[in-house]
Design a protein around this nucleic acid. Sequence first.
DNA 1: ATCTCGACCGAACAACGTTCGATACATCGA
DNA 2: TCGATGTATCGAACGTTGTTCGGTCGAGAT
Lengths: 261, 261
Amino acid sequence: MSAPNAEPAPVRVGRAGRSTRRAGGPTRPRVSHSLEAVLGGAVAILDEGGEDALTFRALAQHLGGGVASIYWYVANKQELLARAADHVLATLVAETRDVADPDPIGEIRALAVQLFDVVESRPWLAGYFMANSGLQPNSMRYYERVGRPLLRLDLTSQQRFHAVSAVVGFVIGTAADIGQEPPEELLDGSVARDEFLGRHADLWRALDADEFPFVHDIADAFAHHDDAEQFRAGLDLLLAGLRLQAMAPRPVGPEPREGGG
Amino acid sequence: MSAPNAEPAPVRVGRAGRSTRRAGGPTRPRVSHSLEAVLGGAVAILDEGGEDALTFRALAQHLGGGVASIYWYVANKQELLARAADHVLATLVAETRDVADPDPIGEIRALAVQLFDVVESRPWLAGYFMANSGLQPNSMRYYERVGRPLLRLDLTSQQRFHAVSAVVGFVIGTAADIGQEPPEELLDGSVARDEFLGRHADLWRALDADEFPFVHDIADAFAHHDDAEQFRAGLDLLLAGLRLQAMAPRPVGPEPREGGG
DNA sequence: ATCTCGACCGAACAACGTTCGATACATCGA
DNA sequence: TCGATGTATCGAACGTTGTTCGGTCGAGAT
């Protein structure tokens, strides 16, 4: 009720850094923020220390101000995260402006790989991408960007809807799975990635061979796998299926749920 | 240090309910727990009220005991969630015992749909499935279950590894996207699902037609979409791609990363 | 009866998200 | 120049959360 509405948060830029410190008081000099600064700070903290590191107190300290001030720009932590996620998506959308390919599916592939790269380097994104509030215009823009090449293919609207949802779902799911908080031993550099994977694979190989034939079969592949390559392999399966669908003749007769508006 | 190791947590069953209440004291009678009871209670609370509802105090009250007792069975909340997730996976693995199909890809499809159904009814699962600690034996069993049909196909180990990772990643990603906390108006029943989707679609249609041609194109499909159908459509694209790969001749010459042993 | 040790509990702690009332500052009309 | 106004910032507090600590209960062994 008394909290600022979801609406307001006027975007103002560049005013940060005006210090006007009071001459006599022991009180901390006032600081000026901006939505840009708040979101940028949030992203910086998320990138540095992951999801747990982002607290209002940490963000306030990062900005050099007080905790309560943040609530002027953001109604609660959920909105902070949603807006921060959309904030980094803005740069992704900007970068995808150049992407073009005579082959529509090739274009989608490029867009998906770009999204994967972003989410892989920022695992916290996965959880808040598509937090379907109205606070994420760039998420929608990306959705549009991926869907547009599909308009060039002979598909029904429903097939297009399913295709985009599948591609984005696949990217997010795989990236979330892959980008899970790596156990500290990896971050310390105390254990190399190869060794970590190798040890994990050894655990798999130690399982009963009759009960886990498949796990045994892929232990080697897992031990030497590359995340991005793994992602692209799955993506190509999905896109191969999509291409097949686009080449197949459309179903005959009136289609369910098509051409209404 | 003083917390119980990740190892111990001996599984004991059925002792709950022994009350032995002290005659004179105003103190609460002692209660006996078990790992089973703790995880079952956690799952019940998660199902009822979602991820936020699961607190140590709520769980303690549900069990009729004290807060600190839970830490005898579980080192921290992360482990509680990981074990709870694996706990429900146990029933999934049990149910998949019957699944069989002469067509390997048909079998995988059935398994994927089953997983989707579970995650859709328990959205909290998505985040903690594959929290690759060693605490989730059933997660691994499911992985094995999905991968086994692939042994019947003419693929490299790497291709099998990629395929399973793609299928599971797709299921989790789509389920997580779909099963996002529905806005309260839906839970209240105050707004029907159709109306909710319709209003959302109207927002899409209100966007600029030149800037968002694709969003306009799929607005109708979105307004009438069914989550499970949407999922299955994407899954079938992925599996079609996989079938194509299985039919294609294997690459010639020594394969990278294969058969090293 | 006593000892032992696995299992349980109450009470406390620090950290977190959030709120409240006070207050500084820029702007503007007089 | 002055005061009024509304925007933006802040310190301090509140309730809740995960987690820890020291103590205690009680079944089975001695």
